[in-house]
Write a protein that binds this DNA or RNA. Structure first.
Lengths: 220, 220
DNA sequence: AAAAAAATTTAGGCTAGTCTAAAAATGTAT
DNA sequence: ATACATTTTTAGACTAGCCTAAATTTTTTT
């Protein structure tokens, strides 16, 4: 039995919201993320539960079943592989690919995904630094820190982002913050947590906590 | 206003069925091609007519409007470009790509199509020899002949096929009939129009009229 | 030209996925 | 612990796209 476009989206979003600790996801959170109303979410949750894709008890929130996890990871794999394709092969910017990949991720052919993966040389990470699950659904879980958690005086490598919207990514572009750059924390302002940083030992700039909370780094 | 997946399919099929001469397409023909019932087709035709995409008078069949033609050609352009991608870049066989392209053709981003086109070096024909409309909707109309219309003793180059099903294309593969090959008609049997042909001045084989009617050639 | 056959449309209904409004359950605060 | 607020579910309804059965129009045959 095939899952619909919409079902796949719910599973993907449940996966993303439940995070690494596999927390229960609330109906309201799903309504927010799917841009629908809570009542619609409830309908869909009953359906997904009937199909054995989620654990669901009324009023208690949801978690993915083994089965549901598998489907979600497959969708995420496809999304991230297509993003690599769009950036590496078609020359899109990392700020332009999310919406297109959102469509491509639902194209249903295993052979297509595997050939795409090979064509791209089995990439491990997408253009935003997110890990790509392998064909069996194994996904490495890199333990990056938020830039906002790095103390003054330390250096770190930029490894990813937590926010995938076009405006945020374009802001990073304009600031010279790209994956792999080296960041040194020169100063942190106590009152608003804004920071003065230096990039690749060259230019320095101020960034707000809004930004530093959404940048993932590896401490050096 | 966006057109749905289903609407795009109807427009594409109307285009394909109305052929070069822009003939009226019947409700029944559409029901057959869309694998739905005539009553469902009628519903959709009213909808497409309301949107100004087809000319439709009850009981009289349909034709695309200027507008509808534009949408149809855009879908066809996308379908054929994705087929080129699947064969040239991902290494699929020409017999495997139709169904996948059937999905990809509805991904809605103009920038995606144009970048894909550039990535593929602006191909003129898809892997089955069908011409690819350009971004403005202009499609070259090569005037190929059916292999079945070539007289005994003549030679021709294989340029395309009229049938895109997997079994037919696999049969051509097994027979050694690939795009660009040279075919000489050695004999034609009067009673069943089956023929003895020679490919690239090498092996000879018998083909039925079923086959020769679905192979497009250019006379030499 | 009337009758029979074929094609098409209408009428009424179904499912997926959405909605609003109202009811019920849960959580929070006195 | 009881009342208030929030969250979630139920009830009933809508649209897109499909269906079957019946009615209507067009085409073909006699």
């Amino acid at each position: 039995m095939q899952n619909s476009f919409t079902e796949e989206n719910y599973l993907k979003i449940i996966h993303n919201l439940s995070g690494r600790e596999d927390l229960e996801v609330s109906t309201n959170a799903l309504a927010e993320s799917t841009a629908t109303r809570a009542a619609s979410v409830t309908d869909m949750l009953r359906k997904l539960a009937d199909k054995g894709l989620i654990h669901y008890k009324k009023y208690q929130g949801v978690r993915l079943t083994e089965q549901g996890q598998k489907v979600a990871l497959k969708v995420i794999r496809k999304h991230r592989l297509w993003e690599v394709f769009l950036v590496e092969k078609l020359g899109f910017g990392w700020d332009e690919v999310h919406d297109i990949a959102e469509e491509l991720e639902h194209i249903p052919s295993d052979r297509l995904v595997e050939r795409l993966d090979a064509f791209l040389d089995h990439p491990q990470f997408d253009p935003h630094g997110d890990p790509i699950p392998d064909a069996k659904g194994n996904m490495p879980v890199p333990d990056y820190m938020k830039l906002s958690d790095i103390a003054m005086g330390n250096k770190a490598l930029m490894m990813g982002v937590l926010e995938h919207t076009t405006p945020f990514l374009q802001h990073l572009d304009r600031s010279g913050l790209t994956l792999g750059c080296e960041i040194e924390i020169k100063e942190v302002n106590e009152f608003d947590k804004s920071a003065l940083i230096q990039i690749n030992n060259q230019r320095t700039l101020f960034i707000s906590q809004e930004v530093s909370k959404n940048v993932l780094v590896q401490r050096l």
